[in-house]
Design a protein around this nucleic acid. Structure first.
Ligand code: ZN
Ligand code: ZN
Ligand code: ZN
Ligand code: ZN
Lengths: 146, 146
DNA sequence: CCTTGAAGCTATAGTTGCTAGAGACATTAG
DNA sequence: CTAATGTCTCTAGCAACTATAGCTTCAAGG
């Protein structure tokens, strides 16, 4: 049996994060010691490692919630899980495309600036006028996340 | 003179967002009409477009605050502005590297799954065990953003 | 002139995924 | 036995908005 600190160390998750996951129902309520401290077994460690890994791959907690409940039904077909993964892949590809455009614009900005006064700074100038950009990088939709 | 709605439409920013920017001091307090409604001129539109464009390029509001106060001093040298842009470029490059790794792992997952039961699903399996991954994609640090 | 509907106002709370702090109890090493 | 660490609950905060409620103001049509 592991205390919350040991569990966190094993899974690479901070202690408050574990309590947070329990609070939002991603982890089941842990059993308690005589002194009211949480105790975890191997199953909890596996579940937490699953969550951590999925987070590292950029899945939202909502997606992970679904993935976990799917993985609790091993006899069901896996199409739903695969669909979640494919949606995540699509999301990553969208972000990648956007970031690639951003990188191009930022590089252009910093390269073009000759480094004089603010009044002549290409960075400031481009920021004030999107028509100076070479691509249409504008926020098409979603955001955030790893 | 523009009402807040017209201003938002011109700059591509939602009305509550404009009020939010004013609240956190990114936009100066707007003048008011006789009936207490905000009124904006060309300068406010330019400033808002600047903010919007910088946001579209992934700058944080804190960075934008600094960029705006720099652009208010046109005689100063532009090194500080360029440094902010280069930092943003570096950040974008870091995210790009991470997302590229994530994309590779997600592709592997969905390609390898044969589509049977959850018990045999490669997606679920890989999520539970990072050692099945081909790269070390783990969250090295920062996150979030465009 | 008056009514109606859209647009504006303030203030508050919710979103996502945590993280930090306060103040009290539990456990463990020396 | 004491001191240091670990854990407990609860609350509040981060970014950057978004949404809601309940009001007032404005512009256009009849
Ligand atoms: Zn410059
Ligand atoms: Zn642009
Ligand atoms: Zn599958
Ligand atoms: Zn992995």
């Amino acid at each position: 049996m592991l205390t919350i600190g040991k569990l966190g160390a094993q899974a690479g998750v901070k202690v408050p994060t574990i309590r947070y996951y329990e609070q939002i129902g991603l982890l089941p309520e842990a059993g308690r010691s005589a002194g009211n401290q949480r105790l975890y077994g191997r199953k909890a460690l596996e579940r937490l490692a699953f969550i951590r890994h999925a987070r590292d791959l950029g899945f939202t907690l909502e997606a992970i919630r679904d993935l976990l409940s799917l993985s609790d039904n091993p006899e069901q077909p896996c199409v739903a899980a695969d669909a979640i993964a494919r949606a995540q892949l699509a999301e990553v590809e969208r972000r990648l495309a956007r970031l690639t455009a951003l990188k191009a614009e930022l590089e252009r900005m910093v390269v073009q600036c000759a480094g004089g006064k603010i009044a002549d700074c290409r960075v400031i100038e481009v920021l004030g006028d999107h028509s100076l950009c070479s691509t249409d990088h504008r926020h098409p939709e979603s955001e955030a996340g790893p």
